[in-house]
Protein backbone atom coordinates (compact mmCIF):
# COMPACT_ATOMS: atom_id res chain seq x y z
CA UNK A 1 0.00 0.00 0.00
CA UNK A 2 1.42 3.37 -0.98
CA UNK A 3 1.92 5.93 1.75
CA UNK A 4 -0.05 8.30 -0.38
CA UNK A 5 -3.06 6.06 -0.26
CA UNK A 6 -5.32 6.93 2.57
CA UNK A 7 -8.18 5.22 4.27
CA UNK A 8 -10.92 7.69 3.62
CA UNK A 9 -14.20 6.40 4.97
CA UNK A 10 -15.68 3.50 6.81
CA UNK A 11 -18.91 1.97 5.67
CA UNK A 12 -21.24 -0.39 7.45
CA UNK A 13 -21.66 -3.11 4.85
CA UNK A 14 -21.21 -6.80 5.69
CA UNK A 15 -20.29 -7.98 9.16
CA UNK A 16 -19.14 -4.62 10.40
CA UNK A 17 -17.44 -1.46 9.33
CA UNK A 18 -15.36 -1.92 6.22
CA UNK A 19 -12.34 0.20 5.50
CA UNK A 20 -12.28 2.03 2.20
CA UNK A 21 -9.15 3.07 0.31
CA UNK A 22 -8.29 5.72 -2.22
CA UNK A 23 -6.08 3.94 -4.73
CA UNK A 24 -3.24 5.43 -6.70
CA UNK A 25 -1.41 4.18 -9.77
CA UNK A 26 1.73 2.48 -8.45
CA UNK A 27 3.27 1.67 -11.81
CA UNK A 28 1.43 -1.38 -13.08
CA UNK A 29 1.40 -0.69 -16.83
CA UNK A 30 -0.16 -3.84 -18.28
CA UNK A 31 -3.79 -2.67 -18.35
CA UNK A 32 -5.38 0.53 -19.68
CA UNK A 33 -4.57 3.67 -17.69
CA UNK A 34 -7.93 3.98 -15.97
CA UNK A 35 -7.59 0.51 -14.43
CA UNK A 36 -3.91 0.54 -13.43
CA UNK A 37 -4.53 1.60 -9.84
CA UNK A 38 -6.35 -1.68 -9.25
CA UNK A 39 -3.20 -3.75 -9.75
CA UNK A 40 0.42 -3.94 -8.68
CA UNK A 41 3.31 -6.34 -9.05
CA UNK A 42 4.15 -8.61 -6.14
CA UNK A 43 7.50 -7.42 -4.82
CA UNK A 44 8.69 -10.81 -3.56
CA UNK A 45 9.85 -11.83 -0.07
CA UNK A 46 9.25 -8.99 2.33
CA UNK A 47 6.15 -7.81 0.50
CA UNK A 48 2.82 -8.04 2.29
CA UNK A 49 -0.80 -7.78 1.27
CA UNK A 50 -2.95 -4.96 2.61
CA UNK A 51 -6.54 -5.70 3.70
CA UNK A 52 -7.78 -4.53 0.29
CA UNK A 53 -5.43 -6.78 -1.70
CA UNK A 54 -5.33 -10.39 -2.85
CA UNK A 55 -3.05 -12.30 -5.24
CA UNK A 56 -4.36 -13.67 -8.53
CA UNK A 57 -3.68 -17.41 -8.44
CA UNK A 58 -3.30 -17.53 -12.24
CA UNK A 59 -0.91 -14.69 -13.06
CA UNK A 60 0.33 -13.77 -9.54
CA UNK A 61 -0.44 -10.07 -9.93
CA UNK A 62 -1.74 -8.28 -6.80
CA UNK A 63 -5.39 -7.29 -7.23
CA UNK A 64 -6.49 -4.20 -5.29
CA UNK A 65 -9.88 -2.87 -4.30
CA UNK A 66 -11.17 0.46 -3.01
CA UNK A 67 -12.54 -1.42 -0.01
CA UNK A 68 -11.30 -3.91 2.52
CA UNK A 69 -11.82 -7.38 1.07
CA UNK A 70 -13.83 -10.07 2.80
CA UNK A 71 -14.70 -13.69 1.98
CA UNK A 72 -17.40 -13.78 -0.66
CA UNK A 73 -16.30 -10.60 -2.44
CA UNK A 74 -15.89 -10.86 -6.20
CA UNK A 75 -12.72 -9.50 -7.77
CA UNK A 76 -11.49 -9.27 -11.36
CA UNK A 77 -7.99 -9.79 -12.69
CA UNK A 78 -7.76 -7.82 -15.93
CA UNK A 79 -4.16 -8.82 -16.76
CA UNK A 80 -5.23 -12.46 -17.15
CA UNK A 81 -8.97 -11.86 -17.77
CA UNK A 82 -10.10 -13.85 -14.72
CA UNK A 83 -13.04 -13.59 -12.34
CA UNK A 84 -12.54 -14.66 -8.75
CA UNK A 85 -14.15 -14.88 -5.36
CA UNK A 86 -12.30 -14.04 -2.17
CA UNK A 87 -12.01 -16.92 0.33
CA UNK A 88 -10.21 -17.42 3.62
CA UNK A 89 -7.34 -19.87 3.21
CA UNK A 90 -6.27 -22.59 5.62
CA UNK A 91 -3.72 -20.22 7.16
CA UNK A 92 -6.36 -17.57 7.79
CA UNK A 93 -5.22 -15.27 5.03
CA UNK A 94 -7.43 -14.07 2.22
CA UNK A 95 -7.01 -15.85 -1.11
CA UNK A 96 -8.82 -15.76 -4.45
CA UNK A 97 -10.52 -18.73 -6.10
CA UNK A 98 -11.10 -18.59 -9.85
CA UNK A 99 -14.74 -18.61 -10.99
CA UNK A 100 -15.32 -20.21 -14.36
Amino acid sequence: MSELETMIVVDGAGDGPRQRYELEDVGFREVPKQWRKFYRHWRGPGDALAPNEVICPICKVVIRSTRELRPGDKVYCMPCMSRMVVVRGADGRLEADVIF
Binding site: I58, C59, V61, C77, P79, C80, M81, S82, V98, F100
Partner: peptide
Protein backbone atom coordinates in the same frame (compact mmCIF):
# COMPACT_ATOMS: atom_id res chain seq x y z
CA UNK B 1 5.43 -11.94 -20.42
CA UNK B 2 2.81 -9.19 -20.07
CA UNK B 3 1.18 -10.49 -23.27
CA UNK B 4 1.38 -14.10 -22.14
CA UNK B 5 -0.70 -13.33 -19.03
CA UNK B 6 -3.62 -12.52 -21.33
CA UNK B 7 -3.08 -15.52 -23.57
CA UNK B 8 -2.90 -18.16 -20.84
CA UNK B 9 -5.71 -16.46 -18.88
CA UNK B 10 -7.95 -16.52 -21.96
CA UNK B 11 -7.34 -20.24 -22.43
CA UNK B 12 -7.92 -21.26 -18.85
CA UNK B 13 -11.01 -19.11 -18.40
CA UNK B 14 -12.53 -20.01 -21.75
CA UNK B 15 -12.08 -23.72 -21.14
CA UNK B 16 -13.18 -23.43 -17.52
CA UNK B 17 -16.49 -21.92 -18.66
Amino acid sequence: VADERRHSGFGENHLGR
